[in-house]
Design a protein around this nucleic acid. Structure first.
Lengths: 201, 201
DNA sequence: TATTACATACCGACCAGTCGGTATGTTGGC
DNA sequence: GCCAACATACCGACTGGTCGGTATGTAATA
């Protein structure tokens, strides 16, 4: 028998294993037995901690959202210009991506499922709303302090986010000519220069 | 019995039905019976035209690629500046998206599967390479005629493409404040202004 | 009459979820 | 400090429905 552990710990262990399996095989192809095997647990144990496969997946998304929210993306930059903070967040995200690609590679899976499952769509929407709000605040701040032109902050926030999502495509269909950092930097530069009030050049 | 039709026609009919079902339910959840039911055909008939579910899906991707390739995106604009052509392609794509959302909404499904299936990944890569090449050519042309600064055309091409992919996200998690056209226009403007040789403003 | 397009009935592998049971804590009464 | 009584964590054989795929037969077409 496997070493007993408190539910709170075991659940997280299971969630991490599930992430790996879901990314590798996709939701439908992922077998409860695969997940269980990764950590040398039994199926019965899994069903002791989670009601169903769907429950597991939903909990996974929630857990994953919490982790993202907990991350100090912009930290230590309070006085700095918004553009700098946004650049920093973008680079930070790129690094995070390289360290934990699986955290991001679930996303296509989530999108695919969100397309047909209301609850999961709702969950994903919530996460994206949070991220969007974060960027919107930064942009509004930048406009207030005459760093940025008057723009539609919602639109720009969304552009930044989808731009970061481009990373997933980048990694999925790896081109060889340039690095993820260069790519992300360029994307951010285009957006930020585009909305900046020109005083250079 | 259903009206008999030549294989070439029936195959396309099946592919179209399959696209709907794959988008609605996802590859794994899609049932061969669902597809067959959509057009009032029998399972035996389906297996007369396609060897397997996988075969059907791969053929679907190929068919889908052919359709995209066949589309005259940039047409009638031969003498115009590259920036204008790119803008035109982007708008055209947005319109196409609104008319045939399913053509685009399979993409997350394809990505998700590409992540675990080499052949499908290869197919998708091919399509994207083609599109990328198209943009690269336009950008090189723009650089040659001093319309654009000297930039890494591969990177910009990719930025344009992932930017267009943002549409999928847009539609999946519909925000209400602005239209797809506005969004695409803004994205293109940011990129194109960013690489333009300044002579306005 | 050969071939192509279709229908119908059927097969069997596969897997989410179940359930009877064991093993290892934990708590409270004496 | 001891031991019921209960709770939590875990095991794994089993099942029942599902669904991709097949075998076989029939009607239309050329």
């Amino acid at each position: 028998m496997t070493e007993r552990r408190p539910s709170s710990e075991r659940r997280i262990e299971i969630l991490e294993a599930a992430l790996n399996v879901f990314v590798k095989k996709g939701y439908s192809e992922a077998r409860m037995d695969d997940i269980v095997q990764e950590i040398g647990l039994s199926k019965g144990a899994l069903y002791h901690h989670f009601q169903s496969k769907r429950d597991l997946f939903i909990t996974l998304i929630e857990h994953w959202m919490d982790q993202f929210s907990a991350i100090e993306r912009g930290g230590k930059l309070h006085g700095k210009p918004s553009a700098e903070i946004i650049q920093h967040i973008a680079r930070f995200t790129a690094k995070l991506f390289q360290r934990n690609p699986n955290w991001f590679l679930v996303e296509p899976e989530i999108w695919a499922i969100a397309n047909r499952d209301k609850e999961i769509k709702e969950l994903a929407s919530q996460l994206y709303s949070r991220v969007l709000a974060e960027f919107e605040t930064l942009i509004k701040r930048g406009m207030k302090y005459k760093e940025f032109r008057q723009v539609n902050e919602k639109m720009i926030a969304m552009t930044i986010m989808t731009s970061l999502h481009g990373m997933i495509w980048f990694v999925l269909f790896k081109p060889t000519d340039f690095s993820l950092e260069e790519y992300v930097d360029l994307n951010m530069k285009l957006i930020l220069d585009g909305i900046a009030i020109q005083n250079e050049k």
